[in-house]
Amino acid sequence: MASQGTKRSYEQMETDGERQNATEIRASVGKMIDGIGRFYIQMCTELKLSDYEGRLIQNSLTIERMVLSAFDERRNKYLEEHPSAGKDPKKTGGPIYKRVDRKWMRELVLYDKEEIRRIWRQANNGDDATAGLTHMMIWHSNLNDTTYQRTRALVRTGMDPRMCSLMQGSTLPRRSGAAGAAVKGVGTMVMELIRMIKRGINDRNFWRGENGRKTRSAYERMCNILKGKFQTAAQRAMMDQVRESRNPGNAEIEDLIFLARSALILRGSVAHKSCLPACVYGPAVASGYDFEKEGYSLVGIDPFKLLQNSQVYSLIRPNENPAHKSQLVWMACNSAAFEDLRVLSFIRGTKVSPRGKLSTRGVQIASNENMDAMESSTLELRSRYWAIRTRSGGNTNQQRASAGQISVQPAFSVQRNLPFDKPTIMAAFTGNTEGRTSDMRAEIIRMMEGAKPEEMSFQGRGVFELSDERAANPIVPSFDMSNEGSYFFGDNAEEYDN
């Protein structure tokens, strides 16, 4: 993207840094990872977990959730003011799984939030270390993106479920800051804005008074975040219109849905970061690795190297396929839920299948599930090659597409044709070009129609051997075009429920 120079890199967003050079960025990201790792080690000690239990991804998720809940100030305040039966607002906890007599047992633990905050700050040299908290939120978000298709949420806001490739980060909490905003897809931002506008339509006082002023500035800020994701002048001009509207209503909703559809071809720039579970960072720190000293990046080879040398386990339900569970977590670790499966298959070195073909449910185990038949197995999170994460949407291309997802959002900077089903997408653009945004709409449609099938995206960008740390010898991959490109292809993934 041309304006790259004016933006802070995501590592800076990730670490609240002012302008830093590459070495400083690597050190501050490393410091953040160190903090998460030290916190995780301490929690495993508190909970008396064995090494194996500490490497269980379900335990990692519970521990991450506990610290996120302990620092969720708004919710904590709300819980104190609106006490609900049987919930102690000062405590947080969740299921911890232990191996007892050759069987997995679930144990519900409860801790004072104050105590968890103390352990977290102690692991982070006394700081609140917001960057580390956001990092864990993005890992949870990436896992949700890989596990669930947001059909219901899309339909509720009037969008087409086939636009799911635009929904990265749709389950990120509001408090995820600049680093969170960077990884949100165009569809996620559109959905947040539509929800806001709908509230304004239904509630006369939404934009009024002292609160209304705050609401208005939040609305304009979200519009600017979305505008910054678009790469064409016409899309940005249309966002200006939406932002400046005196009284946002149905016309703005129409414009936003139009823009979301246009992003299936004229893709937005959305950041991709490899955020790993805390149970990967903990053992690495415990083994003596100093992330701050060595430096770390979320968008280069580092996460690949770390996963190459990590042992992570997962509980497996009786009829689940461990290899499929591994694929789910591998995609989440690489922030690749909406990437082209052919690119992923090449990088991973084994075939990556669409969601609907995987015999696996989510990673988390519900409290009512029976533990008797639970097994555990090693997650295979290694890769054959590594590639640089991208934040450009890439230019655009036609490809055989599917009944489910009709476009992709690249996660890796790797040369390819970008699949999208042009006739299906263009069919949504018939007729409606009147109104105050008509010239911009016409211009956007013209650009979409001009998108050429034979153009290559990320020209000359390749993948790298894991021994090639400096990215000196790019390998331009070859793809098996007979395979499906979309992950949520004609899909039956479970729906995400809060």
Results as ranks from 00 to 15, higher is better:
residue 151 T to I: 01
residue 2 A to E: 04
residue 198 K to D: 01
residue 483 N to Y: 10
residue 252 E to F: 06
residue 59 N to F: 04
residue 3 S to R: 03
residue 114 E to I: 10
residue 262 S to Y: 13
residue 125 N to G: 11
residue 330 W to M: 09
residue 100 V to L: 15
residue 468 D to G: 00
residue 371 M to F: 01
residue 389 R to C: 01
residue 148 Y to H: 09
residue 155 V to A: 08
residue 173 P to G: 06
residue 17 G to E: 03
residue 5 G to L: 06
residue 88 D to Q: 11
residue 163 M to H: 02
residue 350 T to W: 14
residue 165 S to K: 00
residue 475 I to R: 00
residue 342 R to F: 06
residue 309 N to Q: 11
residue 182 A to V: 11
residue 377 S to D: 01
residue 100 V to I: 11
residue 471 A to P: 00
residue 182 A to C: 05
residue 224 N to V: 14
residue 425 I to F: 00
residue 358 L to Y: 07
residue 101 D to I: 11
residue 402 S to A: 13
residue 183 V to S: 08
residue 154 L to E: 06
residue 375 E to I: 05
residue 111 Y to M: 15
residue 225 I to L: 15
residue 450 G to N: 13
residue 27 A to F: 00
residue 247 N to V: 03
residue 100 V to Q: 12
residue 317 R to V: 08
residue 449 E to S: 07
residue 408 V to Y: 08
residue 33 I to A: 15
residue 206 F to N: 11
residue 441 R to T: 04
residue 368 N to I: 13
residue 453 P to G: 14
residue 162 R to W: 10
residue 365 I to C: 07
residue 373 A to G: 06
residue 56 L to W: 02
residue 197 I to R: 00
residue 91 K to Q: 04
residue 311 Q to N: 15
residue 492 N to F: 02
residue 254 E to G: 10
residue 262 S to I: 06
residue 267 R to T: 00
residue 273 K to N: 12
residue 427 A to H: 03
residue 69 S to L: 07
residue 139 W to T: 11
residue 138 I to E: 01
residue 229 K to C: 08
residue 141 S to F: 14
residue 15 T to I: 15
residue 428 A to C: 15
residue 415 Q to H: 08
residue 102 R to Q: 03
residue 359 S to K: 04
residue 29 V to F: 07
residue 386 W to L: 12
residue 273 K to P: 08
residue 296 Y to H: 06
residue 33 I to F: 04
residue 336 A to Q: 00
residue 15 T to A: 00
residue 309 N to C: 02
residue 160 D to K: 02
residue 358 L to P: 05
residue 340 D to C: 10
residue 422 K to L: 12
residue 287 S to W: 11
residue 439 D to M: 01
residue 391 R to V: 02
residue 317 R to I: 03
residue 129 A to Q: 11
residue 110 L to Q: 05
residue 208 R to D: 02
residue 154 L to V: 14
residue 477 P to S: 01
residue 307 L to V: 11
residue 280 V to F: 02
residue 50 S to A: 15
residue 203 D to Q: 06
residue 179 A to E: 12
residue 169 G to Q: 05
residue 335 S to W: 02
residue 37 G to H: 04
residue 460 G to P: 00
residue 69 S to V: 06
residue 75 R to F: 08
residue 111 Y to E: 14
residue 12 Q to H: 15
residue 109 V to E: 13
residue 128 D to Y: 13
